[in-house]
Amino acid sequence: MFVAWKKQGIVLFSFDGAQQRVYRHETVPSANLLSQQDLSKGTASLKLKSSEAEDGNYSCEVTELNREGETKVDLRTVTGRQFDFMESVVISVLLFLIVVFYWAQIGVIALKCETVHKNKTYVAVGCAIFTVLAVIAVVLFIQGGNITINKVGLGFVVLPAVILMVLQYYIFKIVLVDVTRKGYILIGLQSFGFVVALVGFALCISACPSELLSVVIAGLAVMAFEDLLALLYMYTSCSRMKDHQTPRKAVEEPLNDAKGVMLE
């Protein structure tokens, strides 16, 4: 098998399978086959440093015995923003809403639930950590000019979201002592949203330029909706617990007064 990569008729790289001989043009000293073992399977891709890859029309010619074929590739360098600006704004807004809904749940627990539980501190710390990561994500993700930084920012948007499912579980444990069926349904809905966002992130990283942010947006939207439902669920649950405790105090006060009268 013989493989030759050319640019505008000039051979940049060639591989002679019969003699196991490799030729590289002086302008691309890092050029090499992506996988020599997979060459017999039809993979004749070329890899080289990005600093040596100039924009232009490339062609790959493969000859095997009496068969030959040619593939043409148009290489263009992507500069500036990797992701669409408006979609980036939507993702940032959804991330902001998720953070707000979680802090609101913690606020509801602090104001309406009188029971003191050490896990409250753990939940607050976990939420604070996620908030810091969310701020870093937005700063890295929404700015333009560097594709790698944008991808890292998107990773900070999606990957730390796994913390939210743990936080949600502990929030339910604090208020309800034991997680109910509704609680598990809400956590399952959040997990589904996370998986969708994670798949979208994987697709966005592999695509260039990215056109699959809508999948990430869909996953984050499901998570934000679940957080809103969880906030309402926590509010109603804490209100019922407080209402249930109020009559007990009303009964205890007359009893205490009666006891005082009897002592006199």
Score class of each variant (00 low, 15 high):
M1T: 15
W5R: 04
I10V: 15
F15K: 02
Q19I: 03
R21Y: 14
Y23P: 12
V28G: 12
A31K: 05
L33K: 11
S35D: 15
S40K: 11
S40Y: 00
K41D: 07
G42F: 01
V62H: 03
V62M: 07
T63S: 04
D74F: 13
L75H: 14
D84P: 04
F85P: 06
S88E: 10
I91P: 06
V93F: 02
L97A: 08
T115D: 10
N119P: 01
N119L: 08
K120S: 07
T121D: 06
Y122V: 05
Y122K: 04
C127G: 06
T131G: 11
L133Q: 12
L133C: 12
I136A: 13
V138P: 05
L140S: 09
Q143K: 08
Q143D: 13
G144C: 05
F156M: 10
V157G: 01
L167A: 04
V175G: 07
D178E: 12
I185Q: 11
G188R: 06
G188S: 11
L189A: 10
V195M: 14
V196S: 06
L213K: 09
I217S: 15
F225R: 12
C238S: 02
C238I: 00
K242N: 04
K242I: 00
D243W: 06
D243M: 06
K249S: 06
P254Y: 04
P254T: 01
N256S: 06
A258M: 13
G260P: 02
M262Y: 15
